[in-house]
């Protein structure tokens, strides 16, 4: 299981790009943090999620 935005998701074995394609996210509107490190966009295709990974998908919201 991969912990994505605080929830356990059965996404191990998928690349970050593949996982994102299963969501409604527009990849240019988000930033990804994998296990506490920012993941550059060019690595979305080649980074494969593994059991125990923690993924944060972050975007701008109204605030301030």
């Amino acid at each position: 299981m991969v912990k994505i935005n605080g929830e356990h998701v059965n996404a191990a074995g998928q690349s970050v790009s593949q996982y994102l394609a299963s969501t409604a996210c527009n990849p240019i509107r988000i930033v990804i943090e994998l296990n506490g490190e920012i993941l550059p966009r060019e690595k979305y295709d080649t980074t494969v999620l593994a059991d125990g990974d923690q993924l944060e998908i972050i975007s701008f919201m109204g605030g301030g």
Partner: peptide, 8 residues
Amino acid sequence: LAVRRANT
């Protein structure tokens, strides 16, 4: 803007 977990 605020920075938050995205609604996927």
